[in-house]
Nucleic acid binder design. Structure first.
Lengths: 288, 288
DNA sequence: CGCGAGATTGACTCGGGTCAATAGTAGTGG
DNA sequence: CCACTACTATTGACCCGAGTCAATCTCGCG
């Protein structure tokens, strides 16, 4: 089990900052971003605000396994992922995790805390992460005078809602294979949009977490990946996934009768036939 | 099939208005509500605005089967349910409906249209309905000067998000019986909150719609209701549901081995035994 | 180099989907 | 007012997809 110790997040000093960091500047030994960078990250067409440099948002770093926020914790800030990978989870009454999302660069965290003023979910870093803090009060305040910012907020919340609707549709209607296929396609697209390869990438989460996210068991996820590998849709090596036939994955609804399933069925039919004939003068079946 | 013709919604004239309407006043032969009434409906503690009577929101009536908005339609207004029952649905690439929610009094519709400026789902009236129109631009504009209103908007969107998260958790983790049980409990609570009986109520939707909502088939819903009825948790008569043991429903995770399932298993075991013994003397039945 | 978390694979079971027959119920129009 | 028709709901029989349990296997890390 991952030791998700909730240490104070390390607020990285200048010496600890990646040189590849795209957004952010230093001040007081910390990273800060202006409004334009925030909007870019969210893919919001920001009508470049005048006050750009006066208005800065602080970054915070989290290490793998650290919690960004926990369920029930008092809400006061939203987060935007600048780099790294996370998961958000619900915990049911018996301590079981239900994965809700795998946020990555450009995604927003914490929106579910607005309603009750307490976070409704828990966010955990799956890799070392760099997040931008958006104090909600301050943000809403700013929204009042900057229409783009207000639109950004409403837009991001609505987008999140639509995403969850799609999730519900998927959980309610699709087979295990179709869910895994969509998950892979979706991940590939997100990696592509981030500038990484959409053909070859590393999963940042375990089979168990994928299963929880998709409403499946880890065994089913593993088996399904193996099956996709066998029919040439993807390559699988531990957490490295290669996408071979994205179109087939996109349109997949139910797996074709695959050789080993045919084999298995044949074996089964044989066994049954043997059992039926066992007592000899068995009633003659009249197959169509 | 329900003929969901998308006629122009009838904008009821004074002669057609229910006498029991709680919120709203007449003007120009139509119903209108002020900000306070809107906030009350949403359970938002409205610090009673001064300009109450100057700022009015129009009502519109929809008849059973009419669509409030459809997927892809240009978004410009949010709706609040003042009375009546609806469903919101997603339509997949082959025309299958996936029910997302059953909005009723106090619920907001259309939030999913903000992001892309087009509605992402379709809302259909399951009974005659009275909705309040909230032109989004106007609302956001007002939010800038009235903090309560702005909070209301963010709060309602966040609440909706949390609701959907709970839905995902349920679809991802619960058995068919647990889903149906939660659905009933949830409905009962909502009816209770609206001032109706939470012990005896009428479902406004078909088994098919319930099944779609819960990620189950209509047969499973029907069977599960029958099973709950048989063990005394509820009474069922078509769409009339009586809640007999709400606590048992709330805590239900998996149905106890119920007599007819035991019976069935016994029968099955017997059949197998019979098959195994095949020729020998027919085993005497041993009913419980 | 050994330990432990994660992944794979097989065998078996069973919850819930599918298909089908029947019965109730509500509108509609003669 | 009632017969006709189209939905809606219930119930049974059967079967398959995915869960469960269990035995390796792999690999990264201390």
């Amino acid at each position: 089990m991952l030791t998700t110790q909730s240490l104070e997040p390390r607020q990285t000093t200048s010496s600890g900052i990646h040189t590849t960091m795209e957004a952010g500047r230093q001040r007081q030994g910390r990273l800060w971003s202006n409004l334009k960078e925030v909007c870019d990250l969210l893919h919001i067409p920001a009508a470049v605000s005048v006050l750009s440099e006066d208005l800065l948002f602080q970054h915070v770093q989290f290490k793998t396994g650290q919690r960004v926020h926990t369920i029930g914790q008092v809400f006061d800030t939203l987060y935007i992922v600048n780099s790294g990978f996370l998961k958000t989870v619900l915990i049911d009454e018996f301590g079981n995790e239900q994965v809700l999302s795998f946020p990555m660069k450009g995604d927003m965290l914490g929106v579910d805390g607005i309603h009750t003023r307490h976070y409704a979910s828990e966010a955990v870093a799956l890799s070392d992460c760099d997040l931008i803090l958006l104090p909600f009060k301050k943000l809403a305040q700013l929204g009042r005078t900057h229409a783009e910012l207000e639109n950004m907020l409403y837009g991001v919340m609505s987008r999140e809602l639509v995403r969850e609707q799609a999730m519900i549709g998927m959980l309610g209607a699709l087979s295990a294979e179709a869910r895994v296929a969509r998950f892979l396609v979706n991940l590939a697209e997100r990696f592509g949009a981030m500038g990484y390869s959409s053909k070859l990438f590393n999963l940042r989460m375990t089979r168990h977490e994928i299963g929880s996210y998709l409403g499946l068991t880890l065994e089913t996820v593993s088996r399904t990946l193996s099956a996709f590998n066998e029919i040439g849709l993807i390559t699988v090596d531990q957490r490295t996934i290669g996408i071979k036939d994205p179109d087939a994955l996109k349109s997949l609804r139910r797996l074709p009768p695959s050789r080993n399933r045919v084999k298995q069925n044949a074996r089964k039919a044989e066994a049954e036939a043997a059992a039926a004939n066992a007592v000899p003068p068995a009633p003659a079946l009249a197959p169509a």
